[in-house]
Design a binder for these strands. Structure first.
Length: 418
RNA sequence: GUGGCCGUAGCUCAGCAGGUAGAGCACCCGGUUGUGGUCCGGGAUGUCGCGGGUUCAAAUCCCGUCGGUCACCCCA
């Protein structure tokens, strides 16, 4: 066992039947994304390390200890993307997409890499489907992006809770952070060690603490949402107005602090039940300063990312499963039968039916078992009798009804009956 | 990076007052010489994660190691 080669830790293989569920989630999501006017972008899985050092907060865990960074043969430092927003904004700037009309609306389906300790719902390589809308700063698009995210969850039939907050712009935070720190220092002796450390390094993160006594204390802390500048205040009110108008239910969570530090103003998170401690199935927010910090023009932006694996896990915990299915399985006997089977398979596949057959030369009973385990709705039998009469036996598996038909008429027959 | 739990057949697991392995599911064959999903009978499959130690004897006890998993952390 130990000598057998295995895949790297935290990078699970995706194969049937689970891959079917993934495909379906992504497929349904893409329909929604296109309806909202987003088109697909693909960026390389690795980027210059510098991109993430500039775009993401330099002191953050994500940058300091979770990136897969390596040197290529030319001595350049490259990093497997730990985030999709930064590369997409980079690409927008690099190709001048912002000059073709704003906002730039792009969606992606992408693998993300973060070197964390794996646990339920958290892998080192995972898949995000998400959008970035760059070049529009008003609250309309914030609300619409949230609406889009919720539409995707509805399309995959997963119930989620929407938590909403505004974390202001850097100016708001510059005023607010000292106030928060002052409060935290005043109760420092009652806080856990981690939180005490975060007072200086990353005070916003204390809101994520799971220690009950700390949570209590933080209820009395000043919240950024109460300290917004007039412009951010108006923006946030605008987002909530739109959501209210559209009948979208949300919970305001003044403790919600998005993980990535480029976020400004609107922040939201979507959680589902049935997931263990990693229960966020998606999240997003506004990042008005990011383009500029990457050396581009000043462009506001907003986006979200949904975790495909976590959505699949949440659905599976509800008992949802997808099994491979087949329209037709062809059972044949003998060499002539097999030749006829392949020629019929080609015709049926051309006509759009998922079709499979036996490659092992199994006995008829075994071929029927195979048809059954592959989930075939129909079986076509080509044996001696059929070859002689020129009519194949077409059996509907769930009813057992059989019909004798010449090969040329089978596709038409199936099209009518299925 | 820190901690708890777990590594036995393809999968889920039993066996652990030490005597060198078993069940269910899945798979293959047959009962039904051309019909699956039900039933009955038969069959194949394991370096019991790896290394070392104790012992006449280790899946079982001890040490180490690797792997998995869950939680912290962090986040989708």
């Amino acid at each position: 066992m130990s000598s057998k080669i295995s895949g790297p830790k935290g990078a699970p293989d995706l194969f049937p039947p689970r891959s079917l569920l993934h495909d379906e989630i992504i497929g349904r999501a893409v329909i929604q994304l296109r309806r909202f006017g987003y088109n697909r972008i693909e960026t390389p899985v690795f980027e210059h390390t510098q991109l993430f050092e500039k775009g993401l907060e330099p002191g953050s865990d994500l940058v300091t200890k979770q990136m897969y960074t390596f040197e290529d043969r030319g001595g350049r430092s490259l990093t497997l993307r730990p985030d999709m927003t930064t590369p997409v904004v980079r690409a927008i700037i690099e190709h001048g997409m912002d000059r073709q009309g704003l906002p730039v609306k792009l969606y992606y389906v992408a693998s993300i890499f973060r070197q964390e300790r794996p646990q339920a719902g958290r892998q080192r390589q995972f898949t995000q489907v998400g959008v970035e809308a760059v070049g529009s700063g008003g609250p309309d698009i914030d609300a619409e992006v949230i609406q889009l995210a919720l539409n995707i969850y509805r399309a995959v039939e997963l119930d989620v809770n929407l938590a909403l907050n505004s974390i202001g712009h850097p100016g708001c935070r510059a005023d607010y952070i000292p106030k928060l720190q002052a409060y935290l220092r005043s109760v420092a002796d009652q806080l856990c060690g981690d939180c005490r450390r975060k007072i200086e390094t990353n005070p916003l993160r204390t809101f994520d603490c799971k220690v009950e006594s700390d949570r209590k204390l933080l209820e009395d802390a000043p919240f950024i949402v109460d300290q917004l500048c007039p412009e951010c205040e108006i923006h946030y009110a605008g987002v909530k107005d739109r959501l209210d108008e559209w009948g979208i239910r949300y919970t305001e969570d003044p403790r919600l602090v998005r993980g990535l530090d480029y976020y400004t103003r609107t922040a939201f998170e979507l959680t589902a039940v049935g997931l263990g401690s990693q229960n966020a199935v998606g999240g997003g927010g506004r990042y008005d300063g990011l383009a500029e910090s990457l050396g581009g023009p000043s462009l506001p932006g907003i986006g979200f990312g949904l975790g495909v694996e976590r959505i699949a896990l949440a659905l599976e915990s509800k008992g949802v499963e997808r099994k491979p299915a087949l329209d037709v399985f062809i059972v044949s006997i003998g060499d002539r039968g097999r030749t006829a089977a392949f020629s019929l398979a080609a015709k049926l596949r051309e006509a759009g039916f998922t079709t499979d057959l036996d490659y092992a030369g199994r006995v008829m009973k075994g071929q029927f078992k195979a048809a059954n385990s592959r989930g075939a709705n129909w079986v076509v039998v080509i044996g001696e009798k059929e070859l002689e009469s020129g009519k194949y036996t077409v059996r509907q598996m769930n009813t057992g009804d059989e019909e004798e038909l010449p090969p040329s008429r089978i596709a038409g027959y199936l099209a009518v009956r299925s």
